[in-house]
Amino acid sequence: LPQVEKRLELVKQVSHSTHKKLTACLQGQQGLDADKRSKKLPLTTLAQCLMEGSAVLGDDSLLGKMLRLCGEAEDKLAQELIHFELQVERDVIEPLFVLAEVEIPNIQKQRKHLAKLVLDMDSSRTRWQQSVKSSGLASNLQPSGAKADALREEMEEAANRVEICRDQLSADMYNFMAKEVDYANYFQTLIEVQAEYHRKSLALLQNFLPQIKAQQEAWMEKPSFGKPLEEHLAVSGREIAFPVEACVTMLLECGMQEEGLFRVAPSASKLKKLKAALDCCVVDVQEYSADPHAIAGALKSYLRELPEPLMTFELYEEWIQASNIPEQEKRLQALWNACEKLPKANYNNIRYVIKFLAKLTEYQDMNKMTPSNVAIVLGPNLLWPQAEG
């Protein structure tokens, strides 16, 4: 039992510390019902903020739709969190509090009470023994008289109280030892409740993610710069990439006679603005008609920023070998053979670009862009080795 007494204090300390730290983990205010708890939960506040943002932006924008779906998801996560915290509070935090602040202190109070009763018993025994000595009787004789009888009864009652209290304390200590499995179960319950909470939260998120991804995939206005050609064409439902078609169309109207087209560097700010506009599929032709170099720069940037060149990594060696063939007829045939091996999307777009460049060279007397010059400035944007990536 002395070992149990020592263990009581250790268990009390551990339970008290765990109760304190576990309570600090709660996001909702302890002791409140589900509705009141929900209002003070950070996740609920976040959900409300997202839903309000969705209402402001509207469902006709992608951000509005995303905010609404994410707001609904966060609100459901908040409900799961409330249920989880209420269960942890009921099945773990409160029992730990009772153990640390009620059950063990009661046993310790019982131990102190026993110590007091032992002192009372010793005191009554001392008074009875003094009464014996003062009576002058021999130690083997019993004292007589009303006073002596009263002292003996007091001593016997004190001894009886000590025995009852000692038995009760022993029973409480043995019960404590026997209930250690129950106390340990509090912590198993904590992990089980956490596991169930995370399982439900994961299932909830997995239910929302397909909806969120579907909205993203269905949205037509996606950036095109730096994105794979096939992806852009599939999303936009086009055969020719929008930046390519838009830039070629504008150059055909206002840039064919511009000297040094594709060779002269455009204004960096104009180029950045035009690329951003092309990414949004919104271009003001009139605004850029006076700056064909910005349009040519945007076309070069789009081609160069493709993850894979228009003429593909796979055919790189074949293009290089074909271009090195001395005889013109054989060289053209080899280039045509490589062209036919291109994926359909690449073939359509390279064909579109080449036709435009052929048209551009018809104005070489004015724009100074001979076929050789065009090849020099645009070739690196149509084909490069994979190692450079």
Rank of each mutant, 00 (worst) to 15 (best):
L141I: 02
L141P: 05
Q142R: 03
Q142C: 00
P143F: 04
P143S: 06
P143K: 02
G145T: 05
A146R: 03
A146D: 08
A148I: 07
A148G: 00
A150C: 07
R152W: 03
E153C: 01
E154M: 08
M155C: 02
E157G: 04
E157V: 06
A158T: 00
A159P: 08
R161P: 06
R161F: 04
V162N: 05
E163S: 13
E163N: 11
E163F: 08
R166W: 05
D167R: 14
Q168M: 06
L169M: 11
L169E: 05
S170H: 06
A171H: 12
A171Y: 06
A171W: 13
D172A: 15
Y174A: 11
Y174H: 14
F176H: 01
F176T: 02
M177N: 10
M177K: 08
K179V: 11
V181Y: 13
V181L: 14
D182N: 14
Y183V: 03
A184T: 14
N185V: 08
F187R: 10
F187A: 12
Q188V: 15
T189N: 12
L190K: 06
I191M: 14
I191W: 11
V193N: 01
Q194H: 13
A195K: 15
E196F: 11
H198V: 14
R199C: 05
K200R: 13
K200N: 10
S201D: 05
L202I: 10
A203T: 07
L204R: 02
L205M: 15
L205F: 04
N207I: 00
P210I: 05
I212A: 03
I212M: 09
I212T: 00
Q215A: 12
Q216Y: 09
Q216C: 07
Q216V: 09
E217G: 00
A218H: 07
W219Y: 11
W219A: 01
M220A: 10
F225Y: 10
K227Y: 07
L229E: 00
L233T: 02
A234I: 08
V235E: 04
G237W: 05
R238G: 01
R238C: 01
